[in-house]
Amino acid sequence: MSGNNSAPKETLFSPKNRKLLSEPIGTSNPITVQVLGVCSVLAVTVQLRASLVLAIAVVAVMGLANVIISILRHGIPPRIRIIVQLTVIASLVILVDQVLKAFVYDVSRQLSVFVGLIITNCIIMGRLEAFALQNKVWPSFLDGIGNAAGYGSILLLLAAIREFLGSGTLMGYQMIPNFVYDIGYVDNGFMILPPMALITVGVIIWIHRHRDRGLVDVS
C-alpha cells in the first residue's frame, strides 16, 4: 500500500473513489438496504462500548480481507474461491480475537461468540464476492472500509438508542441526571431485551425509507 499512498491526492480520492466510501453509509447501507450482516448488529447493541469495539474489529477485518483477496484475485481458482475467502477471513478474525483478548479482555468476554461470528458475517463475504474479486487493490480497500463504516454506523446508532433508553447511560457514563429519576422517570428495561433490537431496526428502516423514497419496496 505504501506505493499507492505516495501517489497524488487527486487520484487517490477521486470522485469515483469517494463515492465507494460514502455510498454504503447512505443509500446502499449494508444493514438497512442490502440486508447483509444483520445478526451481530442485533445481538451486541445493548451497550455502546461493546458495539464500538465490534465496529472497529469489522472495519479492520473487512479492509484487510478486501485488500488480500484483491491482491490474490488472479490466482484464485473460481471453484474453490469460497474456501479461500473463508480461510483469509478466519485468519484475520483469529488475529483480531487475540488482540481483543490481550487488550480489552472484559469487552471480549462480553462479545463472546460474536467475535468469531465475524467470519460468517455476510457483508464481508458479500463484498469479497461482489467487489474485491474484480477490482484493484485501492478501490477494494475503500469499498471494504466504506461498507464496514456503513455497518458500524447502524451498529453505533442502535447501541446509542438502546443504551440511552434502556439504562440511561452512554459508554457507561450516566446521561440522565438524578433529578429526572427523582421526578419519577424509570429506565425502559424493555429496550435491553433482544426483541426490541429488531423493532428498533424496523423503525430505523422505516425512517430511512421514508426520507429516501427510491428505496421503497414496491413488490
Binding site: 438497512t32 440486508v35 431485551l193 433482544p194 426483541p195 426490541m196 433490537a197 429488531l198 423493532i199 431496526v201 424496523g202 423503525v203 428502516i205 422505516w206 425512517i207 430511512h208 425509507r209 421514508h210 423514497r213 421503497v216 419496496d217 414496491v218 413488490s219
Partner: peptide, 23 residues
C-alpha cells in the same frame, strides 16, 4: 402496510413481536 415499512421493515417488527412471544 405503510409504503416505507413494506418488505424489510415490517418483517423486522414482526420478528421482534415473535421474539417477545418466545420470551
Amino acid at each position: 402496510v405503510p409504503d416505507p415499512l413494506r418488505g424489510l421493515g415490517i418483517t423486522y417488527i414482526i420478528t421482534g413481536l415473535m421474539g417477545i412471544a418466545f420470551m
